[in-house]
Design a protein around this nucleic acid. Structure first.
Length: 269
DNA sequence: AACAGCACCTGTAGGC
DNA sequence: TGCCTACAGGTGCTGT
């Protein structure tokens, strides 16, 4: 469900709530929501103190006093709710308990979300491996786009987490609209002007969405179960048949690599 | 290398 | 109301 801006929103709130807290225990309500050994996860986390909460791509990172790290990826429908009693009773998968009766619940109807323990902090501290750079600075994004030689569609490349970490289906569509580029254009065929526009558009779209605390459709909520407001700012995503906000041409929806793909046939060439 | 198809899961919306 | 299909913000696997 959540992409970089939603995960960033959640991580910032959890950092405030959880930094310095000690986990008293973990309850595994749906064992497959743990990647790796369940018993090890449970044993290792009991008694651990959280020293920092952050984000890398779409992963939420919890740094522990021992030097270990655990990550949570929310995939499509995962939510993290911090409360004494979570507002949602259904679909609870994990519960991290803290002193004083408060707890962090992973709530996830589709059961795709995964928590994982990384017992040894790896050198450089980057978790998990294999991710491309963060796409929040134009300079960084330009450096990546500059080197693209792939004939894959540019949107497909933007969704590849090894290229840039954190962009998902909503913000790929939004950034390509802002840059005026067709989603199915071959990545290697972007000219310098297009690469420059896209390297501006991606951080602009993501930072604006972070400022709006993310996009909330039916299921996205932050850790206090509040909605973000970026859904009111979307230009193309979920707007098929509706008029383009720039030129009034109806937004078109197609399918690219099995995912819905929204664009303005007039503004994106 | 790159793509399609499917798997993982459940909920919801729309057609009939 | 019920039955059926398609689709959903993600990723990983397999086969071609």
């Amino acid at each position: 469900m959540p992409e970089l801006p939603e995960v960033e929103t959640i991580a910032r709130e959890l950092a405030v709530e959880l930094t310095g807290r000690t986990i008293t225990g973990v309850d595994i309500l749906w064992p497959r929501s743990i990647a790796g050994a369940v018993a090890t996860f449970k044993r290792h986390l009991a008694g651990e103190r959280i020293v920092a909460v952050g984000r890398r791509g779409k992963f939420i990172l919890f740094r522990l006093a021992s030097g270990a790290v655990f990550t949570i990826h929310l995939r499509m429908t995962g939510k993290l709710l911090f409360a004494v009693a979570p507002s949602e009773k259904k679909h609870r998968r994990l519960r991290f308990r803290f002193h004083g009766g408060t707890a962090l619940h992973l709530v996830d109807s589709r059961k795709f979300a995964r928590a994982r323990l990384w017992p040894q902090a790896r050198k450089g501290g980057d978790f998990p491996g294999g991710l491309g750079p963060e796409p929040l600075l134009s300079r960084t994004v330009y450096g990546v786009l500059e080197k693209l030689t792939s004939r894959r569609a540019i949107k497909t490349v933007l969704l590849d987490q090894r290229v840039l970490a954190g962009i998902g289906n909503i913000y790929a569509d939004e950034a390509l609209f802002r840059a005026g580029i067709r989603p199915d254009k071959a990545a290697a065929r972007l000219n310098v002007a297009e690469k420059r526009r896209l390297s501006q558009a991606i951080p602009a779209v993501l930072n604006q969405a972070i400022a709006n605390m993310g996009t909330s459709f039916s299921t996205f909520r932050n850790s206090r179960n509040q909605s973000g407001s970026h859904q009111f700012r979307l230009q193309v995503y979920g707007r098929d048949e509706e008029p383009c906000r720039r030129c009034r041409t109806p937004i078109r929806k197609t399918r690219l690599n099995g995912r819905g793909c929204h664009f303005c046939p007039e503004c994106q060439r």
